[in-house]
C-alpha cells in the first residue's frame, strides 16, 4: 500500500490522511480513465463507503474527475491530481531521508568521500 506498512526497507508507520488520498489517486491513475469505485476500493484496501468519501473530496478539490459510462461513474486523475502526487512523493522522499539522519544522530546523512589528497 502507498505509504503504509508494506514499504520494503521503510520504517513501519500508520497511514496518514495524505497517504490515503495519494493511495486513492494512484489506484485511479492505473485505470486510465476507467476506474470504478469497487476496483479503487480493492486497490486501495479501503471499504467502498470510505473510499467514496475520499473520492468525493478529491472530486471537489479538482484532483479527480468523473463521467458516466454505461450508467456507472468512472473516475480519472486530473493534472492537479498528478501535481499533488508529484509533490507528495517528493516530500515523502525528503521526510524519509530526514528521518533516517535524525535517527543516526547526525545531520550528515551519508558518508562523503575524504578530502582530495587525504
Amino acid at each position: 500500500m502507498v505509504g503504509g506498512r508494506d514499504d520494503v526497507g521503510a520504517l513501519p508507520r500508520r497511514r496518514e490522511v495524505s497517504d490515503l488520498y495519494a493511495t486513492v489517486l494512484e489506484v485511479v491513475k492505473r485505470y486510465h480513465g476507467a476506474a470504478r469505485i469497487t476496483r479503487v476500493s480493492y486497490g486501495a484496501g479501503m471499504p467502498v463507503d470510505r473510499v467514496r468519501n475520499f473520492m468525493d473530496r478529491l472530486l471537489a478539490l479538482g484532483l479527480l474527475k468523473s463521467e458516466e459510462v454505461d450508467g456507472r461513474p468512472v473516475y480519472d486523475i486530473t493534472a492537479r491530481g498528478q501535481e499533488f502526487l508529484d509533490t507528495y512523493w517528493k516530500m515523502r522522499g525528503y521526510i524519509e531521508v530526514l528521518g533516517r539522519t535524525t535517527e543516526n544522530g547526525s545531520a550528515r546523512g551519508h558518508r562523503r568521500p575524504g578530502p582530495p589528497g587525504a
Partner: peptide, 19 residues
C-alpha cells in the same frame, strides 16, 4: 497502484504508484 515486489524482472515497461 500500490506496491510491486518482483524477484527478477524481464519487462518492457513498469509503472507503479507506491513502491
Amino acid at each position: 497502484g500500490g506496491a510491486v515486489e518482483i524477484s527478477e524482472a524481464s519487462l518492457d515497461r513498469l509503472e507503479v504508484g507506491g513502491l
